[in-house]
């Protein structure tokens, strides 16, 4: 049971976007919202929740998980909004679930995304890579 929880916790961490806080150097221009995905096993799959927190007052907020969308509307900075979707996953299977939060801005919207793996881990073929050392000591990662 402990092992199962540990595996689930690892999967739930996933690729949850990038935390901007406390970075000395400004990150690239972005949507003014922090997003992450959380998942818990549910009958026949997983319940996946997007957790979105605007970093500025926003006139509109739209949450999307696995292609399903919910309009939230005006949201103040620091207020967290969530949207949960059931994602069917067959036993022994897995999937990358995509979620995002779109913030209304002047003339359009800005969207920030997160990806979370639920279920079985993907079978990734190791990419062939060889380290070459060139004259002068330059080390090159040779992909093929």
């Amino acid at each position: 049971m402990k092992l199962a929880l540990a595996v689930f916790a690892l999967l739930a961490l996933g690729d949850m976007g990038v935390a901007d806080a406390d970075r000395r150097f400004p990150p690239k221009p972005t949507a003014p919202v922090d997003v992450r995905l959380e998942a818990r096993p549910a009958r026949g799959g997983y319940d996946v929740t997007i957790v979105a927190t605007p970093t500025a007052d926003v006139a509109g907020l739209t949450l999307r998980v696995a292609g399903r969308e919910q309009r939230v509307g005006t949201t103040p900075a620091g207020a967290t909004r969530t949207f949960r979707v059931h994602v069917p996953i067959a036993a022994g299977e897995g999937a990358d679930v995509v979620g995002s939060a779109a913030v209304d801005t002047h003339g359009g919207s800005r969207r920030r995304a997160a990806v979370l793996r639920v279920g079985a881990a993907p079978i990734a073929a190791p990419s062939p890579e060889t380290i070459r050392t060139l004259p002068g000591g330059r080390r090159v990662s040779e992909a093929r």
Partner: peptide, 20 residues
């Protein structure tokens, strides 16, 4: 034009057309 793609659409905008 500034374009930043991501897994679910990203965003972009036009500095000639838009007025802030």
């Amino acid at each position: 034009v500034y374009i930043d793609t991501n897994k679910d659409g990203g965003f972009g905008w036009n500095s000639d057309r838009d007025v802030t």
